[in-house]
């Protein structure tokens, strides 16, 4: 009690000042229309700002779910694009064909870029339906590689940037097809081989997957022709392709599931065996 009295004796004037000002402002805000409006308005503004920050934080903590749903949405969109690519064919296809390819979204856990033989690891495995020799893309504009090995929860993908990569590709609206290999150590450029010299090509042509393998459907964009040389004494061009997607900073991928691959492979094997 003595302390309280002492406190008032020492700081009484200051406490009184604060109390009187509070009374004044109470009166101002409650009995003056203009000031009341400004007070209410600005307090609403601050409350709205706080609510905005709070929603920002909750959105951030929700990012993983949103990302997953976006991945699924993307997967269906890319499936539709592949379907459109086939439906614009001159040869009409059977209805069943349209659902031949489906996509499995997955995130990338681990990757190497600067080695001679590079690999990716996906965070999904056989439990989600991933099998050996499936193709992996990052979007409609980019191949990533081919599944080489699958465990229950992970799958090991041979990157495009691997000396063993060989993917059948063709050039959009031109004839002929060749195979895409990685000879340089440049993660943005690859080489397209075995396009015969009698085909006409030009710098800037778009390179797409040919669809001759069971891994990739036709029409997935790979890159653009940056330059080409015709090697003397050879039948083929040596074409440098600049990739559309940058493999050095990929976080998500889609695994292409081909429903008819076993059937196709079995048929082709029978022919070889005969």
């Amino acid at each position: 009690m003595y302390n309280v009295v002492q406190l008032f004796a020492k700081y009484g004037a200051h406490i009184m000042f604060v109390v009187l000002e509070i009374i004044c402002f109470y009166l101002i805000i409650n009995y003056n229309l203009v000031q009341k409006e400004i007070f209410l308005n600005s307090s609403n503004v601050y409350a709205a700002k706080i609510a905005q920050q709070q929603s920002k934080i909750s959105q951030f903590s929700n990012l993983r779910n949103q990302n997953d749903s976006l991945m699924h949405e993307n997967a269906t969109l890319i499936e539709n694009l592949i379907t459109i690519e086939y439906s614009s064919d001159n040869i009409p296809e059977a209805d069943s064909f349209y659902n031949q390819y489906s996509l499995i979204p997955a995130s990338i856990c681990n990757s190497t870029i600067h080695l001679r033989n590079n690999h990716f690891t996906l965070c999904k495995g056989s439990r989600e339906g991933i099998k050996k020799d499936m193709g992996v893309i990052s979007s409609y504009q980019g191949i990533i590689g081919i599944v080489r090995n699958v465990s229950e929860n992970f799958s090991h993908v041979m990157s495009l940037l691997n000396s063993q990569t060989k993917i059948s590709c063709s050039i959009k609206s031109r004839k002929g097809h060749g195979s895409l290999v990685w000879k340089t150590m440049d993660p943005l450029r690859m080489t397209l081989e075995s396009i015969p010299k009698h085909e006409k090509i030009a710098v800037g042509d778009t390179v797409i997957t040919s669809g001759y393998s069971t891994m990739f459907p036709r029409g997935i964009l790979v890159g653009k022709i940056e330059k080409y040389v015709s090697i003397p004494g050879s039948n083929n061009y040596d074409i440098t392709v600049k990739l559309f997607n940058d493999l050095t900073n990929i976080k998500y991928a889609y695994v292409i599931q081909n429903r008819l691959d076993t059937e196709q492979a079995k048929l082709e094997k029978e022919v070889v065996d005969e």
């Binding site: 000042f17 009187l20 000002e21 009374i23 004044c24 402002f25 109470y26 009166l27 101002i28 409650n30 009995y31 003056n32 000031q35």
Partner: peptide
């Protein structure tokens, strides 16, 4: 200030300034 505010019809404004 409060007395002044009664004539000015602005409860608290003059009082707040004058107390300050």
């Amino acid at each position: 200030g409060i007395a002044l505010d009664m004539f000015y019809d602005s409860p608290g404004i003059h009082a707040a300034a004058l107390v300050f």
